[in-house]
């Protein structure tokens, strides 16, 4: 597959920020990603969509080097992951951590600075200031001294986002940042994502809500064990591709049921 002819912010030839080449991942011999070959263009907001168990989170983890590859290779920011790790920010799923952990909001956000600090050194005044600014960007400054168990789901997600911002990365990988958040948080996240794009950063996010894909994202990777399609939302996010991604399971009726469940009204 040749790189997408995008209006990349990178000068010269459009170098993909992430180049996933022939990647297969298996857990206990069962493949969860099969021969994935996909590029992520620079400076775009990219959604990964697909049904449950399609390997969306695994693709993120493969890019981050958190799961062993059965075959293939991943190039990130033009190099091996090991050399560029400090330039990649990560937002794991909210459920991945124990929210009763004895830690405050600002301490969680300061963790974003740990990578740049290296061994033994503690976050200093400058790091605390960056953490405070990142909390302000997600509208959580007032809660910085709260214990994290006191946060609502949306607030937890904002804290995770602020922690990723504190990493000051070039590429952000987010695992379902919109899952289970309130409307206000959703607006904040969208605003932050657009801010990152305007600053030339790239965001790859696993996304569940098909309705909002065209509104929130520029680019889409459609996944179901294999890569179904990848490209700009306008040309790639089509009914035919959705059909092949979700198989027979996504009928019009399902879409309607989904819309009703979310309390949104389809406006087309």
């Amino acid at each position: 597959m040749s790189p997408e002819p995008t209006s990349s912010t990178v000068t010269g030839a459009p170098v993909p920020v992430v180049d996933v080449h022939d990647v297969t991942v298996a857990y206990h011999r069962r493949p969860v990603l099969w021969d994935i070959d996909v590029q992520v263009p620079a400076g775009k907001l990219v959604a990964i969509v697909g049904p449950n168990g399609a390997g969306k989170s695994t693709l993120l983890k493969a890019v981050l080097g958190l799961v062993p590859l059965a075959s293939g290779q991943v190039t990130v920011l033009g190099g091996s992951l090991r050399s560029v790790r400090r330039r990649v920010g990560y937002v794991p799923q909210r459920e991945a951590v124990d929210w009763d952990f004895p830690i405050t909001v600002s301490e969680v956000v300061q963790m974003g600075r740990y990578g740049k600090l290296g061994w033994i050194r503690r976050p200093g005044a400058a790091d605390r200031e960056i953490a405070r600014e990142c909390l302000a960007k997600v509208g959580m400054e007032a809660m910085s001294e709260r214990q994290i168990s006191q946060l609502s789901g949306g607030q937890q997600q904002r804290v995770f986002l602020a922690r990723a911002l504190a990493q000051e990365a070039e590429l952000y990988l987010m695992d379902e940042p919109f899952a289970g958040v309130d409307a206000a948080t959703e607006r904040v996240i969208v605003e932050v994502l657009r801010g990152l794009r305007d600053a030339g950063r790239t965001v790859v996010a696993v996304h569940h809500d098909l309705q909002t894909v065209p509104e929130y994202f520029d680019h889409v990777i459609m996944l179901n064990l294999r890569l179904v399609a990848a490209g700009p939302v306008g040309t790639t996010f089509t009914g035919a591709n959705l059909q092949s991604t979700y198989g027979g399971r996504l009928t019009l009726l399902d879409q309607a049921a989904e819309a009703i469940r979310k309390g949104t009204v389809a406006d087309h």
Binding site: K61, L64, G65, L66, R82, R85, R86, V88, Y90, P92, A96, V97, D98, F101, I103, V108, M111, Y114, G115, R163, Q167, L173
Partner: peptide, 15 residues
């Protein structure tokens, strides 16, 4: 602290 709280994030950060 970072490994106890969020091991995946710590890995992603290169620890």
């Amino acid at each position: 602290r970072v490994v106890c709280f969020d091991r995946e994030f710590a890995s992603g950060q290169g620890w």
